[in-house]
Nucleic acid binder design. Structure first.
Length: 404
DNA sequence: TCTGGGGTCCTAGGACCC
DNA sequence: TCTGGGGTCCTAGGACCC
């Protein structure tokens, strides 16, 4: 069988690049990619972390996800720009639509990354590396920002390759290159080896990807159980997973928010839950799915997260049903301590056709659904939360005024 | 006024059933 | 009547990704 050819495409400093493009479009003469700059939320709203950084900011050792406060300490004259998620979504869609011309098998991996299976296209494109350079150049010319492209025989290696040296680069990681390109890297560079796994691997003297690839299987098995297989294979550049064409169906939907101040007012928390219930179920309805389980999660002021969940007998995507259950969970689980964040998550989905309804529920649902559809359309047309109970609208208009 | 938000997948323990 | 054990589902928590 022919070797597969997989591309991994990754937008360099995506949020920052996209904001730079937007500002240039709007007539700003300076390109914020050429100065020490970051994209970050508002400190006042307690959203002050670094979401993206320019290549120059990186030289000051500024890291994604650290606080704006820390970033400013490292670089006092850093320029800070707010995120614009609607714009990012637009740029993201535009990119993936463009890429679709090269292969029908594209897996969107995040807002700014995708895998493309190029295997079937070898009669169209003889040299895959040249093709990668062509795509990279076209993106730069058409859209005004740079990407990294990894070319390999599987997704894992393509992903590792696109991460090698940034920005604006094409890298390959074929089987014959694993020893020389992958093995020398520190173990934490391996996909899915985060902080905790790194520490545990370091403890048994595994410090590079090569160490892992060549370590004793039994030892690894003993310390990492089911994770051991993944680790060993990954370190050897082995991965059989398919490029899966994305559908809009997710397996969970959640909304959470760090509150402007810690909150221990249960009535306030209920109001947040109603907004969350409306927004999560609306998403669920667009996916034509029904949720069985509702989870409420809290973050306390010391950053500890706890959660509580309950399930419906009949899966639902109805705002009221979900909200009612959320209130039950709140009553049972909330311990009156001030919370920094509250969130709502829906999970355990079933799709339209295998949902079981009782006869009476069927009739009720039909009525409910047509009302709900009308509301959804209005909300979509005019913004997030036009139609909500009066008490909620007050909160929303307040927070909108703050933004304006 | 230092620490966002949205996902996926896994694990361990308990309940329950046979 | 001397207390096994497998399967499955649920819950809470956690690791990791972007």
């Amino acid at each position: 069988m022919d070797e597969r050819i997989i591309f991994h495409i990754d937008v360099n400093n995506a949020f920052l690049s996209w904001t730079a493009v937007k500002l240039l479009n709007e007539g700003l003469s300076q390109d914020i990619r050429n100065i020490p700059s970051i994209i970050a939320g508002s400190e006042k709203e307690r959203h002050g972390i670094v979401l993206a950084k320019s290549t120059i900011a990186k030289k000051y050792n500024i890291k994604t996800a650290e606080t704006v406060y820390q970033a400013q300490k490292k670089c006092p004259n850093i320029k800070i720009f707010p995120p614009d998620y609607q714009w990012y979504l637009k740029k993201s869609q535009e990119l993936f639509e463009y890429l679709a011309q090269y292969s029908p098998t594209i897996e969107q991996f995040s807002i700014d990354e995708c895998f493309i299976d190029m295997t079937g296209t070898k009669y169209l494109y003889k040299n895959y590396i040249e093709l990668a350079y062509k795509i990279k150049k076209e993106i730069k010319e058409q859209f005004g920002y740079t990407v990294n492209i990894g070319v390999a025989n599987n997704k894992l290696c393509a992903k590792m390759a696109s991460d090698f040296e940034k920005p604006d680069k094409v890298h390959s990681l074929f089987k014959s290159e694993i020893k020389s390109k992958l093995w020398p890297l520190p173990i934490e560079d391996l996909f899915m080896v985060g902080e905790k796994t790194k520490e545990r691997l370091n403890k048994i003297n595994i410090n590079t990807i090569g160490d892992l690839a060549n370590c004793n299987d039994k030892l690894l098995q003993q310390y990492f159980k089911n994770q051991a297989n993944y680790l060993k294979n990954a370190a050897n550049g082995m991965d059989n997973s398919e490029v899966k064409i994305r559908t809009d169906k997710t397996s969970s939907i959640s909304i959470s928010q760090t509150l402007p101040q810690d909150c221990s007012d249960k009535e306030k928390l209920k109001e947040y839950l109603l907004i969350y219930a409306e927004e999560t179920t609306r998403k669920l309805r667009t996916q034509k799915q029904y949720a069985k389980t509702v989870v409420i999660f809290y973050k306390t002021s010391n950053f500890k997260i706890y959660s509580s969940q309950a399930s419906l007998e009949n899966p639902s995507n109805n705002t009221n049903e979900i909200y009612k259950l959320a209130l039950n969970i709140l009553e049972k689980s909330y311990n009156n301590l001030p919370v920094r964040l509250i969130g709502l998550k829906l999970t355990n989905f079933v799709s339209d056709n295998n949902r079981q309804l009782s006869f009476f529920e069927n009739i009720e649902q039909d009525k409910n659904n047509s009302v709900q559809q009308t509301i959804d359309k209005l909300n979509e047309k005019f913004g997030k939360t036009v139609i909500l109970p009066a008490s909620i609208k007050i909160i929303n208009s307040k927070s909108r005024n703050k933004e304006n």
